[in-house]
Design a protein around this nucleic acid. Sequence first.
DNA 1: CGCCAGGCTTCTA
DNA 2: TAGAAGCATGGC
Length: 286
Amino acid sequence: MTRVIPMILEKSSLEQRGTNLILHGTGRFDLDATLDCGQAFRWKKGGDEKWRGIVGRHALCVWQHGDSVVFENTSAEQFRTVWQPYFDWERDYDTINKVLSCHPVLSEIVAFSGGIHILRQEPWEALCSFILSQNNNIPRIKGIIDRLCQQFGSPIEGGYTFPTAHDLAKRTVGDLSPIRCGFRAKYVLDAAEKVSDGRINLSALPSMPLDRALECMQTVNGVGPKVANCALLYGCGRIDCFPVDVWIRRAMDILFDGKLPAVAEPYAGIVQQYIFHYARMTKLNI
DNA sequence: CGCCAGGCTTCTA
DNA sequence: TAGAAGCATGGC
């Protein structure tokens, strides 16, 4: 049975084909780049070219053909409540990309990275993941997070959930040793304690003034400006955040003489992700 | 093997 | 108060 549902605000449409749901007309959206640009660490691409990952308590297998994206075993209802917000399909990236492209250098970066969407991840998962990311490389971060979920998450069909702050708050550094996250263990535990006992209220962060939200994040031992910005950008939908790491620092100096063009400021977080992907993939060979 | 990784805390001058 | 050292671990 095939049914096509036109979508509000989009040129796209949904088609239910058997148990799979297909989103047509995704334009310039790039699933590979979105899931592999260093913003999320729990997606794996199989030999069958399909991505598998877990968000909340939902396991998903997803792939792309041209401008269609296929969601395995997904209902329209689940798409609307889980995957549409997660993949940030409510946001008008076409218009943002158009606005950015008036700047010559940004235009080149948009041409390269403009298919990326910022994923709306769980705040706790984003905070915890980016604590684990510090002074670390992406393949190893993924391994650590895999082990964290297997050890302390809940088993569900298709894998394990990300452990809650409450789950981790009662653990010790010794408990975390099988995770092999090194000196970061004490930082994760401090974050877990502060989130689970309410000293940090993650649900208040999206609407807080940015400077206060950053300050709040940085009350965690082991969370500085970079991790705080990442947690707010990827976990709280704060696209006004601009995390600066070594790649971004170098790219900003080379591409923009150290200063982000004014036209990019309202979308700083999105542009940051575009630049990060561009910098890593091209190694800034310009 | 040595260098470095989506940094941060702590020590030192 | 700025700048360097130290930190666990392993990918490349």
